[in-house]
Design a protein around this nucleic acid. Structure first.
Length: 883
RNA sequence: GGGAGCAUAGCUCAGUUGGUUCAGAGCGUCUGCCUUACAAGCAGAGGGUCGGGGGUUCGACUCCCUCUGCUCCCACCA
């Protein structure tokens, strides 16, 4: 069979993914095996695959494939999130592009469009995940707005309402004037923003509502809100303003009289020490207003425009109004000065609009009890965060959590199951029928037409926090007496969760809360937090910067295996990863390396008459031991979630140990057959290597595993058992490494002396060197080895050391005696200095008595080795000088 | 403003209770090779006072203090 020198992934990948799907290898049903479960962090239903998804899902897939090969019943549940505000925005934008305004539609009409959009674009990302090789159980695909999952959300709301955790109230919320909805505290991003600090003159009222000639100066960044001022506040300690006590001042432009009040909230050193109190548009001001019984004057509407209560600039956008009022104040003589000012401003995570603090009626979920328990789950170690530095962040958040604003003024999502009676009272029930029944208890005359359901929907996270439960049993939440079905009982709690630290609070913490509440158990044991994917300059990948490659293009160009390896190579848990296409190239090159190793082995012709050369016998024995040694390391890395370390260990094992040493050692001469024993051993090792690599690079390993032997339909590498370590002889492995050191030493000399690898040389080794591995040296270094005490004495040679073994290549005529002498003298000088430091340590009473025995023994060995090296070098030196 | 974390080779990062000959890996670089699996390759080599300073210790990349630089999270925009 003629194989190309390059591996081409495109055909292979689709072929095997189809094969896996056809045989339902990804599908899991409960059985007697130990389950290993992962639920996907559901991507936005309208999202498309970006590099962050690639990283995250590759990690998930590596874990799930490894667990599957370890013999566990592996189940990875995929799905998507309805992402209410993001999706609704997209739908609104699309409708607008078609000339349709959301306001012109009824709720039902809008939702029809939204569902159409979802059906058309929804789940694109899931098909993209297939390209990546994700081994999700697609039969279990869920969507957070699947009818039964929505029902779970509604039941959860009713459950918490009945428990007294959900309440409705007027609160200052974060209003997104672009999304036209309240958003939670977590969805507000504060950024330092350059703005202006306006110093305004508020004239003192003369007592009859007219300005006197006296004024005070008030500093504000928001002059457009002065019409909503309810008071001016000073610190009671502030002697500069004692004269103001009891007076009234006039709001500029509208000349409205407001009182001077005193509150210690005001910092005397900040601004002018006078604070305008605007209860409707600032959280602190609201609280001050509450304390002093001030009226709330809301002058800004849903869209961020001034309303008629503002009296002036009605209908203007808040920023436009700010610009205009500056001029008006200046003309009116109320503007003292304007300074540049940088201060943190809250922006909506979704729409990037400047958040407007605004009073409105919203639904809240009490968090204190839930947070306390969720904190305990992590503090106790029941839920492990990896890396654990996030425990601090987690604790801080859980100890300072505030009630969760769960209502959103949107249509796309689960509608809040509160039903209002005409008199304003309301009932909370899972459906209209139950609501009617409940309402009749309040008022027997009520008909279903009288009941009006709350217009708001629930925060998306109020559905995704149920994800690890609801994907297995949507009926579970909200039914405390409901017995978990077999799926939930079997798969819950899930094993590991892989996600980004940016949603540690949004999602991870809340899943822990829901798990504790409904399952009395944690939702997962380990949370592996990935970093953010950045470009190689360290910038976050973003559409606007255009620095984010399309993963599908990369898969097309390099193959999914290459992309997976490339992403993983540089990703340690919790650290941001700097993406560089060179890493993907490295992945591609590795595919090629594996491919060519296969080409070599598959080209070997078995020779039944050939016996096993000694070199092969040594190499086979060594590699078997080495395999176990490496497997131990790999398992250790996996158990500690050091995925990139595990990967690098396997990578080097394949490339260096297997290709560079093992294959070169057993490779038969050109046009020569290979003995059966070596061939079988090599095939066995290659297969073991394919299995080790499979979780990371599923496609090429399946391709080659299938190609290396006749397989029957339905066989697959992905269900083979992952190799396990057995006992190995570490001394033998070390001896082989010494042989490699000797080979490298000879090759180095060849390079220095410009001697072709084809020219056979002699190598003298002092006795004590493990003789068994000498055939390997002879083959790979193209030398004949002589072991003798007097070696090097009779002929000039170039010497080198492998650990404590002195070796020399006789090269009459090519040896520069001066160079050799200098080299040896340098060795002696270095060793003497080293020896001195070791001896200093050993002669230190406190070291010998204080340090562990093992450490002291090691120092003694260092001493002995050093002495041996010095003696060897001196002997060679003497021999050289005698010549 | 509050909190957390980071600083090790040109780049990206390991370094797991302070002690193995511990200063490492990958990539890149340099040198020599079209050697009959692979030039997307082979062979070899060079490269770091572990951010600065101080301290604890027999011993510090590792622990403490301090300085400098960077990052992230939280925070009610006078």
């Amino acid at each position: 069979m003629e194989l190309s020198a390059k591996y081409s992934p495109s055909v292979t990948e689709d072929k095997w993914y189809e094969y896996w799907l056809k045989h339902k290898f990804f599908h899991s049903e409960p059985d007697e095996r130990e389950p290993y479960t992962i639920v996907i962090p559901p991507p936005n239903v309208t999202g498309i695959l970006h590099m962050g998804h690639v990283l995250n899902n590759t990690l998930n897939d590596v874990l799930i494939r490894k667990a599957r090969m370890d013999g566990k019943n592996a189940c990875w549940v995929p799905g998507t999130d309805h992402a209410s505000i993001a999706t609704e925005n997209k739908v609104v934008a699309k409708l607008r592009s078609e000339g349709i305004e959301k306001e012109s539609l009824t709720r039902e009409e809008f939702l029809k469009y939204a569902w159409e959009w979802k059906e058309k674009h929804g789940g694109i990302i899931l098909s993209q995940l297939r390209k990546l090789g994700a081994s999700c159980d697609w039969d279990r695909t869920r969507f957070t707005m699947d009818p039964d999952l929505s029902e779970a959300v509604i039941n959860t709301f009713v459950y918490f309402y009945r428990k007294g955790y959900i309440y409705r109230g007027i609160r200052m919320v974060n209003w997104d004037p672009v999304g036209h909805t309240a958003v939670s505290d977590e969805e507000v991003i504060h950024r330092d923003t350059v703005s202006k600090f306006y110093h305004l003159r508020y004239f003192i009222s003369d007592g009859s509502g007219r300005p006197s000639d006296k004024y005070i100066i008030i500093a504000t960044t928001r002059p457009e809100t002065i019409m909503a001022d309810a008071a001016v506040c000073i610190n009671p300690e502030d002697e500069r303003y004692h004269w103001l006590k009891g007076k009234k001042v006039l709001i500029p432009l509208i000349n409205k009289e407001i009182p001077i009040i005193e509150d210690s909230y005001v910092e005397m050193g900040f601004g002018t020490g006078c604070l305008k109190v605007t209860p409707a548009h600032d959280v602190n001001d609201y609280e001050i207003g509450q304390r002093h019984g001030l009226p709330v004057i809301d002058i800004i509407d849903d869209h961020g425009r001034l309303n008629e209560k503002a009296r002036i600039l009605v209908g203007e956008d808040r920023f436009e109004a700010r610009r205009k009022i500056e001029e008006m104040l200046r003309e009116a003589g109320n503007l003292e000065k304007v300074e540049d000012y940088t201060s943190p401003v809250g922006y909506s995570e979704r729409t990037n609009a400047v958040i407007e603090p605004r009073l409105s009626m919203q639904w809240f979920l009490k968090m204190d009890a839930l947070a306390k328990e969720a904190l305990e789950s992590v503090e106790s170690g029941k839920v492990r965060l990896i890396p654990d530095k996030y425990r601090n962040t987690y604790r801080h958040w859980m100890e300072n959590v505030r009630d969760w604003c769960i209502s959103r003024q949107l249509w796309w999502g689960q509608r809040i199951p509160a039903y209002y009676l005409p008199d304003g009272r309301f009932v909370v029930e899972p459906n209209p029928e139950a609501a009617l029944e409940a309402a009749k208890k309040l008022n027997p005359d009520i008909t279903s037409a009288d009941l009006k359901q709350d217009e708001d929907v629930l925060d998306t996270w109020f559905s995704s926090w149920l994800w690890p439960i609801s994907v297995f049993d949507p009926e579970m939440p909200g039914h405390p007496d409901h017995r978990p079905n077999s799926d939930l009982a079997y798969y819950y709690p899930t094993s590991d969760l892989v996600t980004g630290p940016d949603i540690l609070f949004f999602w991870v913490a809340r899943m822990i809360m829901a798990g504790n509440e409904f399952m009395k158990d944690i939702p997962f044991r380990n949370v592996y937090l990935t970093g953010i994917v950045r470009d190689k300059l360290g910038r976050k990948m973003s559409k606007t910067l255009g620095n984010s490659p399309d993963p599908l293009d990369l898969i097309e160009k390099y193959g999914a295996d290459a992309v997976r390896l490339g992403m993983l190579l540089c990703s340690s848990a919790g650290n941001d990863i700097l993406y560089d296409e060179a890493q993907i190239e490295q992945g591609r090159n590795f595919c090629n390396k594996i491919w060519n190793a296969f080409r070599l082995i598959s080209g070997w012709k078995a020779d039944e008459n050939a016996s096993m050369p000694e070199t092969s016998a040594v190499a086979v024995k060594w590699f078997g031991y080495r395999l176990s040694q490496v497997l131990e390391q790999v398992e250790d890395h996996f158990s500690k979630f050091r995925i990139s370390d595990a990967l690098m260990t396997i990578y080097k094992f394949f490339w260096d140990d297997f290709c560079s040493w093992y294959l070169e050692a057993v490779k038969p001469a050109y046009n020569t057959g290979i003995d059966i024993a070596t061939l079988e051993a090599t095939r066995g090792y290659f297969e073991a290597l394919l299995k080790m690599i499979h979780p990371v690079m599923p496609f090429i390993t399946e391709e080659l595993w299938q190609a290396m032997s006749v397989r029957s339909e339905g066989e697959t590498i992905m269900l083979q058992r992952y190799p396990t370590a057995s006992k190995y002889d570490a001394d033998y492995v070390e001896a082989f490494e010494d042989a490699c050191g000797a080979v490298a030493g000879v090759r180095n000399i060849r390079q220095q002396k410009n001697i072709s690898p084809k020219e056979s040389l002699r190598l003298n080794i002092k006795p004590g060197f493990p003789g068994t591995v000498i055939p390997v040296i002879e083959k790979l270094a193209n030398v004949s080895v002589a072991v003798s005490e007097t070696s090097g004495d009779s002929e000039a040679g170039v010497t080198f050391m492998v650990r404590t073994f002195e070796m020399s290549v006789p090269l009459t005529g090519l040896v520069n005696a001066e160079e050799e002498i200098a080299k040896l003298e340098a060795v002696i000088a270095y060793q003497e200095q080293f020896l001195e430091s070791v001896r200093k340590k050993l002669s230190n009473e406190r070291f010998v008595t204080g340090a562990p025995e093992k450490v002291v023994a090691m120092e003694r060995k260092k001493e002995a080795d050093s002495i041996a090296k010095i003696e060897a070098a001196r002997a060679s030196l003497a021999a050289l000088r005698n010549r």
